[in-house]
Design a protein around this nucleic acid. Structure first.
Lengths: 137, 137
DNA sequence: CTTGAACCTCAACCGACTAGAGGTGTTACT
DNA sequence: AGTAACACCTCTAGTCGGTTGAGGTTCAAG
């Protein structure tokens, strides 16, 4: 049996976050000690590791709930799990594309300013005037 | 003079968001009509465009506040503006690096699963077992 | 003068936590 | 058995950057 602190140390998930996951229904309410403290089984630990890993990969709480549900129905086709991952992959790729645009724009801003004072600062001018931008955003 | 709706249409910033920016001190409280409705000058419109552009580039409210303050002191050196942009550029690059890792991992998950049902689904197995990952996250 | 769209304020909500107050349980050591 | 230190409990409120809705007022066209 593990205390909430044990789980926290083993998974790297902070204690209040573990309680939050319980409240959100991602973790089943564990047994309690005589003094009402949470006592987790090895299953509870594995479940939390799963959640941690999924969060690290950027899945939101709702998606994780779905993935957990799927895990409870081993006979079902894994089409749904594939779909959830595919959606997440697309979301990540979109973010990357967007951030690459921003990176170019910011890099351009930071290298083109040769002014000595704010009055002529390229940074502030390009923030004020969209036409100085490369990409449309 | 522009109404808040005019500003919204011209900048693409939603009306409650404009009021929120005012509350956050990014926009000066504008004049009001007889009936207490906001009436913006061309300056107000430009200020909001500036904010919109900076938000699009990912600057947070605090950074935008700093940039606006800098704009009010044209004689100062633009070192501070450069620093803010450089910080943002680094933050964006870090996010990109992280998302590229996730992209690889998710892509691997989504292509390696050839199972027909959840029991053998590679997706769920790799979420459960960190050792199946390429990168450390 | 009326109608309907646009506007006002205020409060609550979103996601995914984090922080703090005020109180109780557990454990190691004497 | 007592005590000190630390871990844990619940509950509330705060974070960021907004969004949503209720309930009421003003504006502009016909």
């Amino acid at each position: 049996m593990f205390s909430i602190g044990d789980l926290s140390r083993r998974t790297g998930v902070k204690i209040p976050t573990i309680r939050y996951y319980e409240q959100m229904g991602l973790l089943d309410p564990p047994d309690r000690s005589e003094g009402n403290q949470r006592r987790y089984s090895r299953d509870g630990l594995q479940r939390l590791s799963f959640i941690r890993h999924a969060r690290d990969l950027g899945f939101n709480i709702e998606a994780i709930r779905e993935l957990i549900d799927l895990g409870g129905h081993p006979e079902k086709p894994c089409r749904d799990a594939d779909r959830i991952v595919a959606e997440q992959l697309e979301a990540v790729r979109n973010k990357i594309a967007r951030l690459n645009q921003l990176e170019r724009e910011l890099h351009r801003m930071s290298t083109q300013c040769e002014a000595k004072c704010i009055r002529d600062c390229y940074v502030l001018h390009s923030l004020s005037d969209h036409r100085l931008c490369d990409t449309d955003h």
